[in-house]
Amino acid sequence: MNATAITSPTDRLGSRALPEDHRAAAAASLDLHQACAAAGLNLSALPGVEQPGQVDIGSVSPETAAALTRMIRHSIKGAVQISERLRRALLAHALDMPEPYVYRGRIMLGEISLSTADRLTGLLGGPQPDPDVELDYWPEAQLLLKRLSTAFKQSTGGFLDPDFHPDCLHCNAEALIDLDSIPVMTARRLARALERRPREAP
């Protein structure tokens, strides 16, 4: 381990008074440097010189990058397992949805069709509309978003903020609902709620 020793957040920039963002970068670089040293990672985190207020980690060896990757993946292992559990629950109900994945510590759900959103609402215990209703009409789509959000809250205790994207005649794109992302624990409760629902007959 040959990382440069840092004993104070002001070692790199001197002891003069620092702006708040510079002090935050200095403190963060010290914390990261010490954590990497404790983990045996040859990575020197330093307050930025060319970009004051940022943390400079410079170049690292492939071995250090690989070790850091393993540590990060280990830290998000639980979230990855929950995203996989949710994927299986969605697949079990033949819901036409993108595979959920971990991004920035949350579970991304992505965009789904209005018919899929309607089915998901029903699986979560929400009311179903008149079968003759055209879901892609703006008023009906807004009602669908409300029904889905309410059913999601009742079944998971969490919040969903879906965003409606109307169909586009110019580009021939169908109407979609963007579910964005949800916290990991909410994703766990969503998977549990779907697992408890009986599967529909083929």
Rank of each mutant, 00 (worst) to 15 (best):
H74G: 12
P62F: 04
A67Y: 05
G58S: 02
I72H: 15
R73N: 14
P62K: 06
Q54F: 12
Q54S: 13
G58Q: 02
A79R: 04
L41Q: 03
G48W: 03
T64D: 10
I82H: 06
S75C: 05
T64L: 04
L43N: 08
A66V: 05
S75Q: 07
R70K: 15
G78Q: 12
E50H: 15
Q81T: 05
K77A: 15
V49Q: 15
R70G: 06
S44Q: 14
I57M: 08
S59T: 12
S61F: 04
R70I: 05
T64R: 08
I57W: 03
I72P: 00
V49A: 14
S83F: 08
P47G: 03
R70M: 00
G78L: 12
Q81V: 10
Q51P: 01
L68D: 05
H74P: 02
I57R: 07
M71F: 09
S83R: 12
P52A: 03
V55H: 08
T64W: 08
Q54E: 11
L68F: 13
R70T: 06
A45M: 04
S61M: 00
V60L: 09
G58E: 02
I82P: 06
K77L: 14
A39T: 02
Q81Y: 05
G48D: 09
V49L: 10
A79L: 00
G78H: 05
I76N: 00
N42F: 09
A65T: 00
S59P: 01
L41T: 05
G40D: 04
L43D: 02
A79C: 06
A45Y: 00
T69I: 08
A39R: 01
Q54L: 14
K77T: 13
S44D: 11
T69H: 10
I57F: 15
N42P: 12
I72R: 15
P52R: 02
A79Q: 13
V80Q: 15
L46M: 14
L43S: 02
L43W: 12
Q81K: 14
K77E: 14
R73D: 15
P62T: 07
L46W: 11
